[in-house]
């Protein structure tokens, strides 16, 4: 099957990604790069014309790229960069950033401070290229800048914020899941007006969400990658509605003196969370919810299994050699 190259206006592709590929079929597939992942959108909507299919694909890709660019930490003149140019001064923030901060605030409260949108700077110490343990002194010097309570911001007056010098926001912990949900919402709204029947799945590197208006519904077959180097999926499940998100250190960890340190960092200690669990996949209503539950699960360390079990949502929790699930 030969893919069609989708031509997307330069203004909708600020990060200059290669053009997305559209594979037309009963279930058409759009494949593109975003947020350091291979992303795909699956669209099954028989009444859609070719131009509508291109239009809706373009809409979805543009939305994902917009979010990526807006909150990227590696761009000079985006929203994220502008937020961090004015330290120690009150500034006004846009509606979308307000909402993301509001969600991050709730997650911070609900997790008793374990999820913290200001913890990104710890990566300066725990970079993936590190071969020796950092000095505790270096961590101690950074810790005063970690903590949501450093931000001068309140949920009741979300339009205004003051970011003290040295404090940094990191939307990486929710950005990808947020993009999945946004793309799914935009596309399903479009399809609902153009096609009597549709099925839709948005998958950004394993974090995915799906929706359909078909009755009875036809489930999507979704796999969860194994921990092995092959990255082949060893768990297959059927998903008709909702989202699945995975958090773990299968790809991102450092090994020092034979000890493995994952990339899930405890904002209270500045150290990686040590636990027997390597990854967790969680099913939820939205990708943001599933992703946050997955992150919070691993942040519980040794208590991860008890925590996720008590939430009542479907999960697959993996240690090196074993998978625990309530399914």
């Amino acid at each position: 099957m030969t893919p069609i190259k989708l031509h997307i206006a330069a203004s909708a592709n600020p990060s200059c990604h290669p053009s997305p590929h559209l594979y037309k079929s009963d279930t058409s597939k759009v494949v593109f790069q975003c947020m350091a992942s291979t992303c795909e959108i699956l669209i099954d909507a028989p009444q859609l014309t070719h131009s509508q299919l291109t239009e809706v694909s373009t809409l979805g890709v543009a939305e994902a790229w917009r979010i990526e660019y807006k909150y990227s930490r590696y761009v000079i003149d985006n929203t994220w960069a502008n937020l961090h140019k004015q330290h120690d001064a009150e500034q006004l923030i846009d509606q979308e950033t307000q909402s993301l901060l509001g969600f991050a605030y709730q997650a911070w409260q609900l997790s008793d401070g374990l999820f913290d949108i200001t913890s990104g700077r710890l990566r300066e110490i725990w970079s993936l290229t590190r071969t020796r343990l950092p000095k505790q002194q270096d961590i101690d010097e950074l810790m005063p800048y970690i903590g949501f309570s450093n931000l001068k911001w309140l949920p009741d007056t979300p339009e205004s914020i003051l970011i003290p010098t040295g404090v940094e926001l990191d939307f990486g912990g929710i950005g990808k899941e947020y993009a999945v949900d946004r793309v799914l919402n935009i596309l399903s709204e479009y399809l609902a007006t153009k096609s009597l029947r549709y099925r839709l799945l948005v998958n950004f590197g394993g974090d995915l969400a799906c929706k359909q208006n078909q009755c009875p519904p036809t489930p999507w077959n979704v796999g969860i990658e194994s921990l092995s180097q092959s990255h082949r999926s060893d768990i297959d499940l059927e998903l008709t509605q909702g989202a699945l998100a995975t958090s773990g250190d299968t790809k991102r960890f450092i090994e020092i003196d034979g000890k493995r340190f994952g990339h899930i960092l405890n904002p209270k200690t500045g150290w990686p969370i040590r636990s027997p669990y390597r990854s967790v996949s969680v099913a939820g209503a939205t990708c943001v919810q599933a992703g946050m539950l997955a992150t919070l699960t691993l942040l519980q360390g040794n208590q991860a299994k008890e925590f996720i079990n008590q939430t009542g949502v479907p999960y697959w929790l993996r240690s090196e050699h074993k998978t625990y699930t309530n399914q």
Partner: peptide, 10 residues
């Protein structure tokens, strides 16, 4: 007060 100091007044 600044907007983020409205926690008590809110």
């Amino acid at each position: 007060v600044k907007p983020w100091e409205r926690d008590l007044l809110a």
